[in-house]
Each structure stands twice: as structure tokens, then as C-alpha cells.
């Protein structure tokens, strides 16, 4: 029993050492991040256009954005053939990164039709 516990402890220590010094190809990680960033920005714009045409208002649009981002994260996982550790150093890279930046693009393209319609009404009233 004591020997068994000892073995487990040493194994744990080994893993901690692994965590302390992660070795990976930073250049390839940068390339992967850039790829994800492009995909997310493009999907945000497309999602914004769709939400704008569909006529979502208020909270519904933001729920739609969350849906788009969830689909995007799933797509990234599928693109990495579900072996995330091989291409990224953590799950946050494909789930969280670029979320807020994409939100800006989304809101811009989502509200663009409203702006047009509103200003059109404004000019007509004038």
C-alpha cells in the first residue's frame, strides 16, 4: 500500500513538472490562433447580417450571437479532429478567445439595417 501511494505521488510530481515547463511550438500556436481569429470575425459578421435581416431585436440577437459562437467553437473542435491538446495549449483558446472582438462586429452588422430604416424614416419625416 505504501509503495503504491509512493508511486502515485511520484507520478503526480512528474505531471506537475510537465505543467511547469510546457514545451510546444509557439509559431504553430500563433498560426492556429490567427486562423481561429479570422474564422470568428467572419462568422460574427455573417451572424450579424443574418440577425439583422431576420429582424431580431433586444436579447434575442445576443442569444443568437451566443449560438453562433457555440457553433463556431464546435466547428473548431471538429477542425482539430477533437484532439485539442495537439493544436492548442488549453480549451480556452477555442471557446473564449476573440469572443468580445467578434461581438463588436456582430452588433455593428446586426444594427446596420435598423440604422438605415430609422434614418430613412427620419428623412421622410423631414
Amino acid at each position: 500500500m505504501a509503495v503504491h501511494e509512493d508511486g502515485r505521488a511520484s507520478g503526480k510530481r512528474f505531471h506537475e513538472d510537465d505543467d511547469d515547463m510546457p514545451i510546444f511550438n509557439a509559431e504553430n500556436l500563433q498560426s492556429n490562433m490567427k486562423s481561429i481569429y479570422y474564422s470568428r470575425t467572419f462568422l460574427s459578421i455573417i451572424g450579424g447580417v443574418v440577425a439583422g435581416i431576420w429582424g431580431f431585436t433586444g436579447l434575442m440577437g445576443f442569444i443568437f450571437y451566443f449560438l453562433i459562437m457555440a457553433i463556431a467553437s464546435l466547428g473548431f473542435a471538429a477542425k482539430a479532429k477533437f484532439s485539442i491538446q495537439k493544436y492548442f495549449d488549453s480549451w480556452n483558446r477555442i471557446v473564449v478567445d476573440g469572443f468580445l472582438g467578434g461581438l463588436m462586429s456582430f452588433v455593428l452588422f446586426w444594427t446596420y439595417p435598423f440604422i438605415r430604416v430609422e434614418s430613412l424614416c427620419f428623412y421622410i419625416c423631414l
Binding site: N25, A26, S35, I36, I46, I71, K86
Partner: peptide
């Protein structure tokens, strides 16, 4: 259109490269 653009947005950017040094 959303489905087509989602597929394109996932496929067009560069492929993921392995970050493991021994791959």
C-alpha cells in the same frame, strides 16, 4: 446562407498546425 458561410469560414483560414514538438 448561414450554413454555407459557416462552412467557408471554418475551411478557408489556414489549417491547424500541431504544436507538439515530437509530432
Amino acid at each position: 446562407g448561414l450554413a454555407l458561410c459557416t462552412w467557408a469560414g471554418l475551411a478557408v483560414p489556414a489549417k491547424f498546425l500541431s504544436i507538439l514538438p515530437d509530432s
